[in-house]
Design a protein around this nucleic acid. Structure first.
Lengths: 144, 144
DNA sequence: TGCAATTTAATTGAGTACAATTCATTTAAC
DNA sequence: GTTAAATGAATTGTACTCAATTAAATTGCA
């Protein structure tokens, strides 16, 4: 008698559509991010820096769910492009403080086109989008 | 008067929790995948091969939303581990056919522990999980 | 039949991701 | 005060991910 492999079928996974969906949507961002010369990771990093103006790498990592292995090269790239500065904290030399530059602030205006263009890309009804949003944050919350 | 940058706030994005959630859950798989020596990408690839027994790279790519740039090294690794074979089709030499080996079939039994262990990792009520599943596939469907 | 267009994988290069380790700095314990 | 533990960033190594390009094979049509 054959074993039951139902639990190993792709169509029975919840993680897989999450994984695939994430990648597909990130891919959709590319044509809108290319004109402002940002990748998706650089874009969400800038989102936090635009809001906070000044933030440490550690705080940035907590907000973005990324570690220093990912953020260090991303932030060096953003510094190289002139959108942020990287400086050690005087209080605690272990902390690297990221600051928004004028150039970075200027980029913010141009970046407004991104959500504008992406708007129609996820075709869910407002209540569906809210349900999805809430469920995703519920899961993230449980990941502590 | 200041401009309205609400649309550029991280908390107003739907893509970001999707992206973060996907990564966090994939990360949760690691301790359960390590014992069977598979990465997450290799695992979902094997899921399709376990079901199909024989499939081309193109078909695999369509099912997994991955292109040959990703799949070629993954499949070479799986071949090297002895779980699949890679052979050109006699009918059309452009097609590379992936076949499940006996060793690969054996792995399937061991892999049953993965969904078993992951079971409790996404703590959603059954109806919430179904809602999430349906919404994700709705989005994927629109990506054609 | 002949060859241009199409299809399919593979390759390459840039950019993530993350585990594990290292290094410098700071804090805590004694 | 000196040492031990903890913290934060950087580094290293492995593995994706995708765009763009290349190469081989097949198809379609003039």
């Amino acid at each position: 008698m054959g074993e039951n492999f139902e639990s190993l079928k792709l169509c029975n996974q919840l993680c897989f559509p999450l994984y695939a969906c994430s990648k597909e949507i990130v891919k959709r961002y590319k044509p809108f991010l290319d004109p402002i010369d940002l990748t998706y990771t650089q874009y969400i990093t800038m989102m936090v820096v635009w809001e906070e103006k000044e933030i440490t790498v550690k705080e940035l990592g907590e907000k973005l769910f990324l570690d220093s292995g990912t953020l260090t090269p991303v932030l060096k790239k953003l510094e190289q492009k002139g959108f942020v500065t990287r400086n050690r904290s005087k209080d605690d030399e272990r902390n690297l403080i990221i600051n928004l530059t004028d150039e970075g602030e200027k980029l913010r205006e141009k970046a407004l086109s991104v959500p504008e263009n992406m708007g129609g890309c996820i075709c869910l009804k407002p209540d569906e989008a809210k349900t999805l949003y809430d469920l995703l944050y519920k899961i993230l919350g449980q990941m502590e």
